[in-house]
Nucleic acid binder design. Structure first.
Ligand code: SF4
Ligand code: SF4
Lengths: 163, 163
DNA sequence: CCTATTACGGACCCGCAATATCCATAATAA
DNA sequence: TTATTATGGATATTGCGGGTCCGTAATAGG
């Protein structure tokens, strides 16, 4: 139950991209040195984000990466999902155990005639866990790269600014 | 970013213990058959929960497991933590990168004279992720084994009850 | 006391995914 | 044309989740 280091790198890379001037590509070289991580590895991470439309890449000399959209439109959730994938936190692993038969059955009785859409026979345990995931996602959706940048700037508020 | 299967098993085992009669020990044998999982493996899982005071075990003939406290006092959170451990979801992995120096520094400036307690120099990124974890924990704290049992009973409401 | 039953804990194995590196190729600016 | 840069595939390495086995201890019942 932990986020991978790749997610860590991804977030940091995005922050660095965000506080750079727009339309100025930043190479993996520069990113890797400032993050203390190898270029090769970081490439794979950036590739994932590119496929999910978070960053844009241009090859060739003077090429590099830039944000594919404004920083306030990049949520923590989509970054995490781009890196970690989109599988659910809780996957039922004993769908054919006696336990599941019982729990799923009595959950099906009440809505037997009403909802027949996507009735996969899930029990209350899964409901709770899925709820947890939804809450987490909601929180992560509300926080963007820009939001941490704002708070950082507000905190220092006077110097140490690039542009 | 997924819960382990062990957590799945643990929750199901607890539910089975909860709906059994009190002071009636249930052996790993019975639990393993109903959950479709090997005895050896389930033993390890039960052992973890025993160490965290969730279940109580008695060896010997007619021994087995029972809940160490009432079902409404067993939250999802403590079960998960008993199995998965208590490490944080987001562990800073580049505390000595240039990036960290910058972000942590300007976060320290404002409260430089005020708070000197446990100032580990954490940045906003970590703040957000820790916040996410807290939200998740809060949600999981509000759901107990009893709560899913209640809903299950309410749903069927007539038959299929053991005692 | 003896025995069957049960939990306990350590040692062990396996497979896979996270981590990380290297290289060959394509694309692009100058 | 050349130097630079991203891209993608192939390939180690490592740790950990998942799973089994077995010897030991404790207990109830005879
Ligand atoms: S639906 Fe419920 S009982 Fe069935 S496998 Fe999932 S958590 Fe377990
Ligand atoms: S404190 Fe912030 S900048 Fe430092 S390693 Fe953690 S997330 Fe990264």
């Amino acid at each position: 139950m932990q986020f991978s280091k790749s997610t860590d790198y991804a977030l940091h890379a995005l922050i660095h991209l965000a506080q750079a001037e727009s339309h100025k590509n930043i190479g993996v070289r520069e990113l890797s040195t400032i993050l203390s991580v190898s270029e090769s590895y970081l490439s794979k991470i950036m590739a994932k984000m590119r496929k999910d439309g978070i960053v844009r890449a241009v090859p060739g000399v003077k090429g590099g990466y830039e944000l594919a959209k404004s920083a306030e439109n990049i949520t923590f959730l989509e970054v995490i999902q781009a890196i970690e994938g989109r599988q659910q936190m809780f996957e039922c692993s004993n769908l054919n155990s006696k336990q599941h038969q019982l729990l799923a059955e009595l959950n099906r009785t009440e809505r037997s005639t009403k909802t027949k859409t996507t009735d996969r026979g899930e029990c209350l345990v899964k409901k709770v866990m899925d709820g947890a995931e939804q809450h987490l996602h909601q929180y992560l959706r509300e926080h963007t790269i820009q939001s941490v940048l704002d708070q950082a700037i507000k905190h220092c508020g006077h110097s140490t600014n690039k542009k």
